[in-house]
């Protein structure tokens, strides 16, 4: 038993961290913003915490708080221009944001360590801390879903014009979703920093973006269980067999194509819809009336 726990701790930690990033991505998609900025926001959080820890020797709690604030602040600022864009334009703008964060990170070597990254970050976030953060995030996302926010996000995502005529302030709601997404990404970025000893800028670039996006697409982007399922599958899968681990990017690529074409809602959402359809198909004949 003890052996087993030790052997699998790194995997559990990885899962918990990525679960947080997946929810950061999930929240914006759910509010109808086609943002791919999560990687950049996570990078901002991670480096805020890392720099505070290494250069200033700040207390980890301060680092986490600062990273969360930095993430949500950056997201809030980013949401202003994004509010004027839609669809592919938002996607392009947010990819540009990720690139800007990456380039500035490389350039600001005296502060961020440049291409070498940051080393010797005290390791303070263990499995327990990660679990608490992940559970907190899970509760927040779950709770929010059941209130006016979830209802408004739902309407915006499905039909913005309809939502607006029903009184939903799209800009405000999307800004809020963005700020939350940034806060969560920043928080988990900081945890990543305090968990991994070291940071390097390439960590939060395109491959990261793709991994996070894959969790949400595979699991489902409209229900809370989606990112959980997607992250679990994609984190555990490579552990099952060596060839799976060696071909990770290939698997992600094939998976993205197959899922978006044949299971476009992802696993969780499809299951929920199928279950609901079955429940309705059973009782009273009147229910069959179209």
């Amino acid at each position: 038993m003890g052996q087993w726990i030790i052997a699998y701790t790194p995997l559990v930690d990885l899962f918990l961290l990525h679960l947080g990033f997946a929810y950061a991505q999930y929240i914006v998609l759910r509010a109808g913003v086609f943002s791919l900025a999560t990687a950049g926001l996570a990078g901002i959080g991670a480096y805020t915490a890392g720099v505070l820890a290494v250069k200033l020797g700040a207390h980890p709690a301060l680092g986490v708080a600062a990273a969360t604030l930095a993430g949500s602040g950056a997201a809030l600022v980013l949401s202003l221009p994004l509010a004027r864009l839609r669809g592919v334009y938002q996607a392009i703008a947010t990819v540009a944001f990720v690139q800007i964060v990456y380039s500035v990170n490389l350039w600001a070597e005296p502060v961020t360590g440049g291409a070498m990254g940051l080393n010797n970050i005290p390791r303070t976030a263990g499995t327990g801390v990660l679990a608490v953060a992940a559970l907190g995030t899970l509760y927040l996302v779950w709770a929010m879903e059941r209130t006016r926010l979830g209802r408004a996000f739902n309407a915006i995502r499905q039909d913005e014009a309809m939502a607006a005529t029903l009184g939903v302030d799209i800009v405000r709601h999307q800004a809020l979703a963005f700020a939350l997404s940034g806060a969560i990404a920043g928080l988990f970025g900081a945890l990543e920093a305090y968990h991994a000893y070291a940071l390097d800028p390439g960590q939060f670039a395109f491959p990261f973006l793709i991994a996070i996006l894959s969790y949400v697409i595979l699991g489902g982007r409209n229900s809370v269980a989606g990112p959980l399922i997607g992250t679990a599958i994609l984190i555990i899968l490579p552990e099952l067999a060596r060839p799976l681990a060696e071909n990770r990017m290939l698997i992600y690529g094939v998976m993205l194509i197959l899922v978006i074409n044949f299971l476009p809602r992802g696993i969780a959402d499809s299951l929920i819809l199928a279950w609901r359809a079955r429940r309705l198909a059973r009782p009273e004949p009147a229910a069959g009336e179209p």
Binding site: T147, R148, L149
Partner: peptide, 11 residues
């Protein structure tokens, strides 16, 4: 559909 933001966030 009104309630304070923290209340809405945390249900």
């Amino acid at each position: 559909d009104r309630c304070a933001l923290p209340a809405a966030l945390l249900n």
